[in-house]
Design a protein around this nucleic acid. Structure first.
Length: 926
RNA sequence: GGGUGUUUAGCUCAGUUGGGAGAGCGACGGCCUUACAAGCCGUAGGUCGCAGGUUCGACCCCUGCAACACCCACCA
C-alpha cells in the first residue's frame, strides 16, 4: 500500500467492477427494501444538492443491502418539460433559429438528442459519486412504458370526472406563452407605484365632498382598458349614495357601473377600486358576484389586443402602461402617484411577470384526491422526518386548489384528447381507441396540441417505474417503497401529488417515510446558483479543478453575462488555488456529517479537507495493521489465543460504535452515524488501540497466545470498522477490505455484500473499559506534565506512584508495559503511603498520586503555574458543590442518587485539593 | 397578515426522558517518536440571543420579546 491515500487510484476501477459484477441489482430473498431516486432533470448536470441527496440515499441503500434486505434503488430521470424546452430553445437561439421555424417534430427530435447527451453526463456523475443504483432498470418519465402509464391515468381520471377542461382565469407566462400552476408562481416584493386616476361621474352625480369624479388607485394602469366596474365598500358613507350610479371610463370611453362589495377595503387608497375581471383574480370573483362582463385585453404574449382602443393595440403591456398614464395625465385625470411596495408574481422558470389570463385549460379536480392523502399522513401510514413538515403538508393540502395540468409547450406528454370540427372532446389513449370508443366514423379529429405539466408524470414515479399499469412482480415486491429522500422545496410539487396519485391508482401509499433534507448552500449561507456564480460541481470536489478552469466554468453561458467580472473576482478570492482533489469518499463523508435534522447545510471546504484527512488516517491505520499482521496471520491455526485488556477494550468500544451507528441510520441521523464512525476510528482505534498494541507487537519475547490475540483483534476490529463505514465511504473501505478480509479468513470478493456489523456480535466489557480508562488517565496526566513543564518528547522519565487503593495497584501491574511505552517511562516505583517523595510534578488520577521527580527536568515556576491552575479549577468545583449541598431544598427534594453522587464528588474534590496544596507547599520549600 | 425553523467557543455545528457545557476547523506552544506532517502531544477560548416563569436544580420545559432564514396568503 502507498503511504498516503490516493482516491483516483481506486475509485473508478472499483465502481466499474461492482457494476460489471451486478452488485447493484436486488439479490437474495431478504425483506424487500426500496427507494426511488427523485428523478434528476435532464437539463444538464447534477449540482451539490443532488450529490448530497444521492449520498444519503446510497448510504441507506448500502446499509440495507448489507443488512441482507432485497434492496432496490430505482434509477431514472425526468423530462422536466418547461425547463428542458427552455434550455434547448436557448441553444437554438444561439444558432439564430427558433422552434417555430423548425417545427414541432424537428424540435422534439432535437430535445431527445439533448436528453441522450445530458442523461449520459448525469449517470457518469452518479457513478463517480459511488451511487449504487440499479442501472438495469433505468427509466425516463417519457419512455414508452411510462408514457403509457401517464395516458392511462389521464384517461381514467377523465372518465371519473376528475379531469376537466374549462375556461378559467389562470397564471399565464407571457414569455413562455403557457399557463403555469399556482406553485410555479413566485411572489416577490418589489418597489412599484400606486397611480390615482380620476374617473368622471355621470348623470350629474357628485361625491360627498362635491367632486364630480371618483379617484381609483391602481398598481396596474394598463388594465383599466379592461375595467367593467368601480367598486366601493357597502358601508362606506363617502360613496354609499353613488352605488348604482355610473362613471365614464377614460380612454376607452365606456360607461361603468358603481357597485358595492365587501372585498373593498375602505382604508386602502381612496376606497374606490377599479374592477378588471379578466385580469385580476380578486376582480374576477367580484365580477362573478355582480355579473360583470369580462373584457380580455391581452394577446398570449401580453401585447394589447383588439378589445382595447386602437391607440394601444399591439403595445407591450409595459409600454401600454406608460402610454395610459401619459394620456390620462394629459387629460388631467392623473390625480397623484405614490411609491408603493407590492408583491409581483413571477414565473419560476422565465422570471417574467405573470399575467392572470382567461384561457381554456385542463384541470385536475383535486379535492377528492386530497382527502385520502391527508388521511394517510394523519393516521401515520406515511411519516415525515422531521415531523414538523407534516404541518407544512397539511396546511397546503387542506386548502388545495384545482391543478392546471395543461401546458402550451411541445416537450412533454401530449394530452390524449381529440376534437372534432364541432369542438366536441374525445379522450382516450390513442386516436384509434377514441374512434372505437366513441363509435366515430369518418370524422376529422384534431389532437389537443398541449402537453402535461411535468409533475403530472412525476406523480406516478413510484409505481410507474415498477411496471404499472401491469401488475408486475416488481410492483408487488417493491411497492410501497420504504422511504422518499427529498428536499423541502418540492413537498407540494411532488411529494403531495405522489401521495394523491399513488393512493388513487394503487390503493397504497407511495412510501412509508419521507425524509426531508436541507438545501446545500455556500460557505456564506447563500443559495448556490448559476446566476450568482457560487455553485460547485460535486465532481470538481472529487477530482479537483484549477482556478482558471473553475472561473471559466462559472462564467460560461450566463443568462446575465454582465455578472461575469464580479463572479470571477469572487471566485479568485474564495479559491485562490482552485480546488484540490478530495475524492468521492471525503465528499460523501462530509455530506453525511453535515446532514443534521432537516436544516440547510453550509458547504465549507475546511470540512471536506478534514474528512479527506480522515480517509488518509484510515488508510494508514490499515497499513500499520497489515505491516504487523500480514506475515503472521493466525486465524484458523487452532493455536491458543489470549485477549489482552486492550483487545477486550477495543472490542467493547466497537460494540458501542456499532450500536450507535445502527441507531443513527435507523433514525436518519446521518451526522451521528458519521460521528460514531469517525470518533471510533480516529480517537479510539488509532489514538489508543494501535498505540497500545505496539509494546506487544515489538516485544520479541511476548507471549505468543497474547500476540495472536492482539493480531486477530487488530484485524477483526479493522475489518468490522470497514464494514460499519462502508455505506458512507464505499471506495476506500472496499479497497482496504480486500487487503484485510483475507487475513481474517474471509475470501469473499466484495465488502458490498458483507453483513453490516451487528451489535450482538460483540459485547460490552465494563471491566476492560474501566481499566483502559484508568490507563488513559495516568497517561494523560503524565502528558500534561510533560507538555506544561516542557520536558522534551524524546526524554524518558521516571515515575513514582503513591496512595490510591488496591485497584490502582492491580491496574498498575497489569498495564505496566503499556504504560511505560505510551508515556515513555524508564521506571515506575511505588512509594509507601508514609514515605516522603522527592520534589516532583504531580498528577492525580482519582486518589492515586502520579509523580515525576523534578531532578533538574522541570522548571519550578512552570510547575507552580500548572498546580495553581489545577487548584483553582478544584476550588471552583468545590464552591459549586458546597452551594448545592448547602441548600436544604436540594438535599431534601432531589433524588437520593443524585445527592449521593454530588457528595461523592465533593469528597473527591476535597481530597484532591488537599493533595495539590501540599504539593504546592513542598515545591515552594524545595 | 398567518406559519415554521434557527440563535451554544473566532467559524461550522452536536448536545438522546432538566442533575458536572462538547466536536471538527481555526488560534497558540512543543514535536520529522520506524502507520499517517493529510500526522502526534499539550494549551487557551462560551453570561448556551434577551427578559420573565415553573423547579431543589433549566442549554433543555412554559410565556413574552429581538434578530436572521424560509414557507404560505387576493389587499387595488
Amino acid at each position: 500500500m502507498e503511504s498516503s491515500f490516493d482516491p483516483h487510484a481506486i475509485e473508478q476501477r472499483l465502481y466499474d467492477e461492482w457494476e460489471r459484477a451486478g452488485y447493484f441489482a436486488p439479490t437474495g430473498n431478504g425483506a424487500p427494501y426500496s427507494i426511488v431516486i427523485p428523478p434528476p432533470n435532464v437539463t444538464g448536470s447534477l449540482h451539490m444538492g443532488h450529490a448530497f441527496q444521492h449520498t444519503l440515499m446510497d448510504a441507506l441503500i448500502r446499509y440495507h443491502r448489507m443488512k441482507g434486505d432485497r434492496t432496490l434503488w430505482q434509477m431514472g430521470t425526468d423530462h422536466a418539460g418547461i425547463a428542458t424546452q427552455m434550455l434547448v430553445e436557448r441553444q437554438l437561439n444561439a444558432e439564430g433559429k427558433n422552434r417555430y421555424e423548425i417545427g414541432r417534430d424537428a424540435f422534439t427530435e432535437r430535445v431527445w438528442q439533448w436528453k441522450a447527451q445530458s442523461g449520459d453526463n448525469i449517470s457518469r456523475q452518479m457513478r463517480r459519486m459511488g451511487s449504487s443504483l440499479d442501472w438495469s432498470r433505468d427509466r425516463f418519465t417519457m419512455d414508452e412504458g411510462f408514457s403509457r402509464a401517464v395516458l392511462e391515468v389521464f384517461v381514467r381520471l377523465h372518465e371519473e370526472g376528475l379531469i376537466y377542461r374549462g375556461q378559467r382565469l389562470v397564471n399565464w407566462d407571457p414569455a413562455l406563452r403557457t399557463v403555469i400552476s399556482d406553485l410555479e408562481v413566485e411572489n416577490t416584493e418589489e418597489q412599484g407605484k400606486l397611480w390615482h386616476f380620476r374617473y368622471p361621474l355621470l348623470d350629474g352625480a357628485t361625491t360627498a365632498d362635491g367632486k364630480d369624479y371618483l379617484v381609483v388607485a391602481t398598481t396596474r394602469p394598463e388594465t383599466m382598458l379592461g375595467d367593467t366596474a368601480v367598486a366601493v365598500h357597502p358601508d362606506d358613507d363617502r360613496y354609499r349614495h353613488l352605488v348604482g350610479k355610473r362613471v365614464r371610463l377614460p380612454l376607452a370611453g365606456r360607461d361603468l357601473p358603481i357597485i358595492a362589495d365587501d372585498y373593498v377595503d375602505p382604508e386602502f387608497g381612496t376606497g374606490c377600486v377599479k374592477i378588471t375581471p379578466a385580469h385580476d383574480f380578486n376582480d374576477h370573483e367580484v365580477g362573478a358576484r355582480h355579473g360583470l362582463p369580462l373584457i380580455n385585453i391581452f394577446e398570449p404574449d401580453a401585447t394589447v389586443n383588439g378589445n382595447a382602443p386602437a391607440a394601444y393595440r399591439g403595445l407591450d403591456r409595459f409600454e401600454a402602461r406608460k402610454r395610459v398614464v401619459d394620456d390620462l395625465d394629459a387629460q388631467g385625470l392623473l390625480d397623484q402617484v405614490q411609491d408603493h411596495k407590492l408583491m409581483v408574481p413571477r414565473g419560476d422558470r422565465s422570471g417574467t411577470v405573470i399575467e392572470p389570463l382567461l384561457t381554456d385549460q385542463w384541470f385536475v379536480r383535486i379535492q377528492p384526491l386530497a382527502e385520502p392523502a391527508i388521511a394517510a399522513v394523519e393516521n401515520g401510514d406515511i411519516e415525515f422526518v422531521p415531523k414538523q413538515y407534516e404541518n407544512v403538508y397539511f396546511a397546503w393540502m387542506r386548502n388545495i386548489q384545482d391543478w392546471a395540468i395543461s401546458r402550451q409547450q411541445w416537450w412533454g406528454h401530449q394530452i390524449p384528447a381529440w376534437y372534432d370540427e364541432g369542438g366536441r372532446i374525445y379522450v382516450g389513449i390513442s386516436e384509434d381507441e377514441v374512434r372505437r370508443k366513441y363509435g366515430l366514423g369518418d370524422v376529422t379529429l384534431t389532437r389537443d396540441p398541449d402537453v402535461l405539466d411535468t409533475w403530472f408524470s412525476s406523480a406516478l414515479w413510484t409505481f410507474g417505474t415498477l411496471g404499472w399499469p401491469e401488475q408486475t412482480e416488481e410492483l408487488d415486491l417493491y411497492h410501497p417503497t420504504d422511504v422518499l429522500v427529498t428536499g423541502h422545496d418540492i413537498i407540494f410539487f411532488w411529494v403531495a401529488r405522489m401521495i394523491m396519485m399513488t393512493l388513487k391508482f394503487t390503493g397504497e401509499v407511495p412510501f412509508r417515510k419521507v425524509y426531508i433534507h436541507g438545501l446545500v448552500r455556500d460557505a456564506e449561507g447563500q443559495k448556490m446558483s448559476k446566476t450568482k456564480g457560487n455553485g460547485l460541481d460535486p465532481l470538481d470536489l472529487v477530482d479537483g479543478i484549477g482556478l482558471d478552469a473553475l472561473v471559466a466554468k462559472r462564467t460560461d453561458n450566463l443568462t446575465q453575462p454582465q455578472m461575469a467580472p464580479r463572479i470571477e473576482k469572487q471566485t479568485r478570492k474564495d479559491f485562490p488555488d482552485g480546488i484540490p482533489s478530495y475524492g468521492a469518499d471525503a465528499l460523501r463523508f462530509t455530506f453525511c456529517a453535515l446532514a443534521t435534522t432537516g436544516r440547510d447545510v453550509r458547504f465549507d471546504l475546511n470540512r471536506i479537507e478534514g474528512y479527506r484527512n480522515f480517509c488518509n488516517k484510515l488508510w494508514n491505520a490499515a497499513r500499520f495493521v497489515l505491516m504487523n499482521c500480514a506475515e503472521q496471520a493466525s486465524f484458523d491455526t487452532g493455536q491458543p489465543v489470549t485477549l489482552g485488556l486492550a483487545d477486550r477494550w477495543i472490542l467493547s468500544r466497537a460494540h458501542e460504535m456499532v450500536s450507535a451507528s445502527s441507531r443513527a441510520v435507523d433514525t436518519y441521523r446521518f451526522d451521528l452515524y458519521a460521528a460514531a464512525v469517525y470518533d471510533f476510528a480516529w480517537h479510539e482505534y488509532c489514538d489508543w488501540y494501535l498505540e497500545l498494541t505496539k509494546p506487544l507487537l515489538w516485544n520479541e519475547e511476548a507471549d505468543p497466545a497474547l500476540l495472536r490475540g492482539t493480531r486477530q483483534t487488530l484485524l477483526r476490529v479493522l475489518e468490522l470498522l470497514l464494514r460499519a463505514a462502508h455505506p458512507i465511504m464505499p471506495f476506500i473501505t472496499e479497497a482496504v477490505w480486500r487487503e484485510v478480509a483475507p487475513l481474517t479468513g474471509n475470501r469473499q470478493p466484495t465488502i458490498m455484500l458483507q453483513p453490516f456489523p451487528e451489535a450482538a456480535e460483540l459485547a460490552a466489557d465494563p471491566e476492560a473499559d474501566a481499566a483502559i480508562d484508568w490507563l488513559k488517565g495516568v497517561v494523560v496526566g503524565l502528558r500534561n506534565i510533560r507538555g506544561e513543564a516542557g520536558i522534551k518528547p524524546g526524554q524518558n522519565i521516571d515515575v513514582l506512584l503513591q496512595g490510591g487503593g488496591d485497584r490502582d495497584r492491580t491496574l498498575a501491574v497489569v498495564t505496566e508495559d503499556l504504560l511505560k511505552r505510551l508515556a515513555r517511562i524508564d521506571s515506575v516505583r511505588w512509594l509507601a503511603d508514609a514515605e516522603e517523595a522527592p520534589a516532583n510534578a504531580l498528577a492525580l488520577v482519582g486518589e492515586l498520586k502520579v509523580m515525576v521527580p523534578l531532578a533538574g527536568l522541570i522548571d519550578l515556576d512552570a510547575e507552580r503555574a500548572r498546580l495553581g491552575k489545577e487548584i483553582a479549577r478544584r476550588e471552583q468545583e468545590l464552591e459549586r458543590l458546597a452551594g448545592k449541598l448547602g441548600n436544604p431544598n436540594f438535599v431534601d427534594k432531589a433524588p437520593e442518587a443524585v445527592v449521593a453522587k454530588e457528595r461523592q464528588k465533593q469528597a473527591e474534590a476535597q481530597a484532591a485539593l488537599a493533595t495539590l496544596k501540599d504539593q504546592l507547599a513542598s515545591i515552594d520549600s524545595a
